[in-house]
Amino acid sequence: MLQIKDIYKTFNAGTINEKRALQGVSLHLKPGDFVTVIGGNGAGKSTLMNTVSGAYPVDEGKILIDGVDVTHLPEYKRAKFIGRVFQDPMMGTAATMQIEENMALAARRGKIRTLLPGITNKERKFYKEQLKILDLGLEDRLTAKVGLLSGGQRQALTLLMAALQKPKLLLLDEHTAALDPKTAAKVLDATQRIVDKDNLTTLMITHNMRDAIAYGNRLIMMYDGRVVVDVSGEEKKNLTVERLLNLFSEVSGSDEADDKLLLG
């Protein structure tokens, strides 16, 4: 479903601030794969996602979604294939617009915006049903401005919006990191349900190793712009935090207990 072929990305090339964020990353996701991504700060996780979404162009390499080469497609065109939830709960929704308006915008992802009504009554009913999945009581607040919602509610809504128009790829960049533990658990729970419902191909970055182990059928670890660990199947199921830390020490060549900090 997603093919990343040997991509490179360097920021501020040729200056003293040069940063090689991605140094030859290749990754193939099969349809229905739910991959969790871990790695220390600055490992290149977000950069990887931003190159897939088209927020940054790559320097080298290719990105294919469902066989379509999207490497040179602008962000807004790639959005047709991709649903996204950001770390910052403010980023995924339009605060000054209503819940139903936000959903209507998401339902038209990848379609030409015409002069037909921006939202119809039939849609409203559908959105109400969809919001019930979240179990946050939002189904009774369709016309509330999104700016009035809490961070967790906004994140859950963004998630729902990302899946509304079934994406070929769901990208989640630490989408629970800004939430308190209880809310984070709720949003993760909703994530699982939404992914399961349509069997979405998903890439989820997290700093929480327990979550990375508990969710998905495959786990990759990034270090210094590369994918250094890639486990799936039975091995993934039997992973423990300890085993993961050991793996990290092996690849990073350090045996410091600080690795825990690096991975969060």
Binding site: S53, A55, E75, Y76, K77, A79, K80, I82, R84, F86, M91, G92, T93, A94, N102, L105, A106, R108, R109, G110, K111, R113, M161
Partner: peptide
């Protein structure tokens, strides 16, 4: 950001 993510 949201707009572009929604294909606008």
């Amino acid at each position: 950001h949201m707009a572009r993510a929604q294909g606008i």
